[in-house]
Design a protein around this nucleic acid. Sequence first.
DNA 1: CGACAATTTGAATCAGATCAAGGCCCGTGG
DNA 2: CCACGGGCCTTGATCTGATTCAAATTGTCG
Lengths: 224, 224
Amino acid sequence: MYVTLSADYQSRTAVPSISRPCLSAREAQIKAGAYLFYEGDEVTWLYQVTSGVLRLTRLLENGRRQVIAFGYPGDVVGFPAGGCHHTDCDALVDTCLQPYRKSLLENGESDIELHGELLQAALSEISAMQDHFMMLGRKSAVEKVASFLNVLAGRVGRYENGVGKVDLPMRRADIADFLGLTTETVSRTLTQMRKSGIIEIENIHTVVILRPTALTSLAQGDED
Amino acid sequence: MYVTLSADYQSRTAVPSISRPCLSAREAQIKAGAYLFYEGDEVTWLYQVTSGVLRLTRLLENGRRQVIAFGYPGDVVGFPAGGCHHTDCDALVDTCLQPYRKSLLENGESDIELHGELLQAALSEISAMQDHFMMLGRKSAVEKVASFLNVLAGRVGRYENGVGKVDLPMRRADIADFLGLTTETVSRTLTQMRKSGIIEIENIHTVVILRPTALTSLAQGDED
DNA sequence: CGACAATTTGAATCAGATCAAGGCCCGTGG
DNA sequence: CCACGGGCCTTGATCTGATTCAAATTGTCG
């Protein structure tokens, strides 16, 4: 899951669900906090998230960290480059996964259709990452946080009593490392959006979106 | 071309050259300044750069711009997502390209080997982009500019009289939009590196690297 | 030579980082 | 059941790196 620019809060983007899940292996499950793989591990499987949320991170020697992406239902993680993983990956909550053999992506002989779907997942990954570049390089803190909420709302938001709600299973520090900010800034920005009546912070892990269009405006930087 | 973190100035990374270039179409050529495709265009071809340099950019409504990547010899550009291009692409200098039909990537039936190589190009693109995230989100201006020079030196640097030289065919504004900075900051940073004797600015489009290891240190943020 | 575009340099400003408390939540153990 | 402790999260004060605005300089090309 990357933060794309234009995701509309209302229109839920279609979750690409791969057609025949059961070819390679049964569904796997990992508990919150457990690691699926580490940077440097050899790639044997790709995983499509069925339920739950994954976190992909990369560490710099000096302790700096970048959250590369969050893996939400529908997302495929674990694309190999040079045969090994380039990020750590752990689960933020209990998570169910559909594994696919790496070979299924790399040579389509065995199952053309599945091969094609994994390939499409890889290609849309590229496109999503390009969007995220714009975000990291060219957006202000408010725009980043608003975009983040906006996209999450579009992807995995839910409705309750006519208002949109978003769960944030990750810590503030994860959001910060995903957006290229500090925890303090993320926190301050959320507070600011709360005070201006755009969101309500139901609890640390749940945000209510009171004014979706205002949120979208913030995300796009429509001069405040 | 993305700026990866660990590229060593000395060791030239292998340029992945695709094996049988002539299957799909003859080599194409475009002049400096000419556009190869625009955002939104339908994808028919992928292109591997043979010689020259491409620039991939994306525009935001409000005029903000992100240079997504530079396409150097060996790089493959034009991966489709949803069938269309997600960036503009133009040439910084006269550029030669080897086109490959999009279908070659999407269904490998016709040529397994070529299909596999394009797929690998896509996968290493993903990995390179992940590196670039760290750069955009977590590096200072000096670290960014130093990394940029460092990687370029490794990829396309040349030696003259025992010193490494790098050509920068792009404008300062392109470097800025690639690194998430302003032109002024890029300029100031280069000046600063010149004054501290790490580089020499032979002319606007050529940088001499006087102290490669110092440059690498700067790039990695080894506390100055 | 002159004009325009790109780059560099300077000064002032500001957004976000950093440093430092303080508060909240939740699990643990008495 | 409540007190304690330790993560997180929030808030405040200050600082600073990068941006912004403005001007000078360089380079390019007819």
